[in-house]
Structure formats: C-alpha cells, structure tokens
Design a protein around this nucleic acid. Structure first.
Length: 489
DNA sequence: AAAAACGAACGT
DNA sequence: ACGTTCGTTTTT
C-alpha cells in the first residue's frame, strides 16, 4: 500500500469512528430516559424492578405518596423509597457519552478524569509491627503522594509519582487509613484536618450529627467537640457542652474567611444522605466554606455550623454533567435566622472561578506549607506511564462498555441487574454468588409444624448492604441491557 | 455487645 | 506530658 493510499484509508476509518461515537449519546438517550421528565436521568437511581429515574423525579413521586414503580407498577421497597442511592455506573456512562459528542462536534474539549482504580500501589501494612497488630496500627503505612500534610486544594499529578494522575474525583477507599495514604484526609479518627492558625485542608462527612444536611453540591457541617467521647466509650453521642471556634472549628473558620479550597470525603456512615457511598470512603472534590455561625443544637448546647459549597473543576460523582461547578447563588438557610457569631468572608477568596479560563484556581497564592513532605521512594514509573497511555488509547465505545463491567466476573454484563444499593452485576453472576444459600431458613419442629421462617442476611458482593429481599426476585435492568447490546454491535 | 487497645496530630 | 478526635481491630 502506498503512503498516500494508507493515509486516505486511515482518514476514512477515523470518519467512521467519529460517526460511531456521535450516536453513542443518542443510543443512551433512546433507552435510558427517565419516564418522568423524558430526559437522560440526572443523578440516576434504579428500582429493584430495573427501571431508571432521576433522583429528583423519583423523590417527587415518592413525596406524592406513591409506593409503586412508575413504569411497571411493582412495589418499591420502603428502604429504596426513603434512601435511594445514585447508580454511579450510569452516571459515568452518560457523562462519557455526552463528552464524546462534545469532542466530535468541536465543543469544549477539556479532558476530565474518571475513577479507574486499577494499578494502585501497595496496601497498608508496610511495617512488621503493623502486620502483626492489624489495621489499628497501620497508620504508619506508606504515604503515596508527595504533598505536605498541610497541603490545600486538589492532589495533582505532579504529587503522585507512582500513577502520575493525582487523586481524582470519585476515587474510593476501603477505610480512613487507606484514604490517609493518598493524602486526601490525614487524621485517622478526627473529621476535620486543620490547624487553628493556618486553616483547614479537608473534612470527612461520616454522619453522627443529626442536624447535618447533605444536598450534594452543598451541605451543612457541624464542628467538632462538645460531646464527651472520653476513653473508649464512643456511645455518648449527646452534646454535653457548647462548641466554640477553637482548634479544628477555628481552622474551618480561617478557611471560610480566606476562601481556601477544602477537600471533601464522604463516608458510608453518612446513612441519611443519598450522596454517600454505600461502603468505604469517596473523594468528592473541592468545596469552599461560604459562611459559618453558631446555633443551638439538638440537646440545647451550642454547635458551630458551616455552609460548604462545591467549587471543583471536575463534575461530582453523582452528576452526568460534562463540566465541573460554576459559581452558583448561595442556598437559603432557614437556621441562619436564629444564628449567632455569624462569619462571612470579607476579603476576596483565595480559590475562585476565573471567567476567562472557565475554571476554579488559586487567585491568591496558597498558604505556605508549615510542614515537611513525607519521603516516599518512586520506582517503576515507566511501567505505570505506559499503562496510562494504553488506557487513553481506546475508543469511546470500548470505554463505555468497560464502564458496564460486572463487578463479579469483570466482563461486560449480560442480563444486568441493579441492586437497591446501586451496584450492577450479571444476573447469573449475582445468583451464582448465592447458589446453595437459601433466602430463608425453614425451621420445622418435631410435629412437622413449620415455625416462622427466619431470614438469612445476604450481603451485596460490593458493599455491606443486605440484599436478601432483592435476591428473591431480581429484575433485569432492560434499559441498561439494551444499551449494552447496541454498543456491542 | 461492650470494652479495651491502638493510633497520630493538634493544642493546652 | 496529656487530653481530644464524625476509627478500626482485638479482647472480654
């Protein structure tokens, strides 16, 4: 083949590829639409009967007192109705399809990050002592990033010598110790990382405070202290004295006044939030503290309160938006009427939106680190680099199909089912996992009379949720199956 | 199921 | 030095 003919041939191939990618979005649009708003679901949730809706549309339906699926009229279990979970597989797929369109139509072609948890270096237990004594001792495990412990803002690629990608929005960890190893939130116990004279770098949302309110892009956070958790008794959840703006609470206030970026990690323990992961912890990106104040909390003692608003360049794990946050008006906070000690930012924020570059960045230089970087040795960086290059060189269709991998067999799902905890598996794989395990334990006494059947607890293969009810009659997510089959053509 | 042990960083 | 912390594991 002549050089010229070859290049013509490649041009033709490229054209075909572009066309194929263009209709990927239409493909999803045709099959996955929310039956309320007829759009691609925003913050998609999936019923156990296998139908997909927007979180808001679904909550509106439930709010009207409905208990059945709007599509097939099957009963929606109360647990799903009150605590719907985002189906993050769908989020990633829809976003990817949208992006492939904007690239090929010449729209804004920024590269966004997705969570790909492969190729991760060592787990904890790097010291002999830690191996012997279990995870409570593993905080001495290796720190993988080169950011100092008081680093503000996102963890960037240049501070990730092993993977060269930094910590991406949506990255997940098993526990606080693993999260610590990636430099995102360092304290092994405390919810706030910060210094009263310097500012706060990160917070963890782990539930426990009844007044906390999570709306994803913004949330209300309560300061630390005020509860007597002395010794090993972690049962006393009641406040027994007033919180003040000291220590960690003061650190958060400094970040509010200066407009510093604060990293946010959500924990599975935040049970009341639709945005919490079902297991472990997840990095959700950068937020700013727009206001803080004190109010009287549940048992009558004063607590410090903070309004966090998201301001990250990458989209949140629960939205299929193609872009990150834009400046948005502050939500209305009723409790501010009774608030005292209100702090609002006086000076211009250090981390802000640059209209010309259309991104969030440091407008003022970040505060100088007061600490030393942990020494980590970086080996075989070449291997990782070539892996990353390989991963980037895949067509949109293939990438999309990879998003639809079964969490058990790791292959593209056949007859996908979605659990109430929003995890996706092949129907066969999921049923195979529990083969031989009965859903109920029949107990018969001597007279042959059947006693009340006792239910077995059957845990989701991806998280600790009990899915025994779901397993009694798991429904194939037909909409999702149609999409997968079309992608494979 | 509850208590104890263990951990690290901040601040007095 | 010592008390504290929106944790996790092992022992009782």
């Amino acid at each position: 083949m002549s050089g010229r003919a070859r290049s013509e041939d490649e041009k033709e191939k490229k054209k075909q590829k572009v066309n194929a990618e263009n209709d990927v979005l239409e493909l999803l649009d045709g099959s996955l639409n929310c039956s309320f708003c007829m759009q691609l679901p925003e913050r998609p949730v999936t019923t156990p009967c296998g139908h997909n809706f927007c979180l808001k549309c679904f909550q509106k339906w439930i709010g009207q007192g409905k208990h059945t699926c709007a599509k097939c009229r099957r009963t929606i279990p109360p647990k799903m109705a009150s605590h719907p979970r985002i189906n993050s597989t769908l989020v990633a797929a829809i976003r990817m399809a949208k992006m492939s369109k904007s690239i090929t139509t010449g729209g804004p072609s920024r590269v966004y990050h997705f969570l790909h948890n492969q190729n991760r270096p060592d787990k904890a237990f790097t010291t002999e002592r830690a191996k012997k004594n279990g995870k409570a001792n593993a905080a001495s495990g290796k720190i993988f990033v080169t950011t100092p412990p008081d680093h503000f803002g996102p963890i960037l690629a240049e501070n990730d010598p092993e993977r060269r990608q930094g910590v991406l929005v949506g990255e997940c960890w098993e526990d606080r110790l693993e999260c610590r190893q990636w430099g995102v939130h360092l304290p092994p116990v405390a919810g706030i990382c910060g210094q009263s004279k310097h500012g706060a770098q990160s917070v963890a949302l782990s539930g426990g405070y009844p007044d906390d309110e999570d709306h994803g892009e913004w949330f209300l956070y309560t300061g630390s202290g005020g509860r007597d958790l002395s010794g090993n008794k972690r049962t006393n959840k009641e406040h027994s004295f007033d919180q003040n703006f000291v220590k960690f609470n003061e650190a958060l206030r400094v970040s509010c006044q200066k407009g510093y970026p604060v990293r946010v990690v959500r924990s599975h323990k935040e049970k009341r939030s639709s945005y919490a992961p079902e297991s472990g912890l997840r990095y959700d990106g950068i937020y700013r503290i727009e206001k803080c104040w004190r109010k009287v909390g549940q048992p009558g003692f004063k607590v410090c309160r903070y309004l966090f608003v998201r301001c990250d360049n990458d989209p949140a794990p629960w939205t299929s938006d193609e872009h990150g946050d834009r400046p948005r008006p502050l939500p209305n906070i009723p409790e501010l009427k009774q608030a005292t000690d209100i702090t609002e930012r006086k000076e211009s924020p250090s981390w802000d939106y640059d209209e010309e570059e259309s991104c969030w960045k440091w407008i003022k230089p970040p505060p100088r680190s007061q600490k030393r970087v942990s020494t980590g040795d970086s080996k075989d960086g070449k291997k990782v680099k070539s892996e990353i290059r390989k991963a980037q060189n895949v067509t949109v269709r293939q990438k999309l199909l990879k998003e639809f991998s079964c969490l058990i067999c790791q292959k593209v799902m056949t007859s996908p089912v979605t659990t109430p905890c929003a995890h996706n598996f092949c129907k066969v794989c999921l049923e195979g996992k529990f083969a031989g395990r009965t859903l109920v334990r029949e107990r018969t006494c001597r007279g042959g009379r059947t006693l009340r059947a006792q239910k077995n607890v059957l845990k989701c293969p991806s998280c600790p949720t009990d899915i025994s009810d779901f397993l009694q009659n798991p429904q194939v997510n037909r909409e999702l199956m149609d999409v997968i089959e079309s992608l494979q053509l």
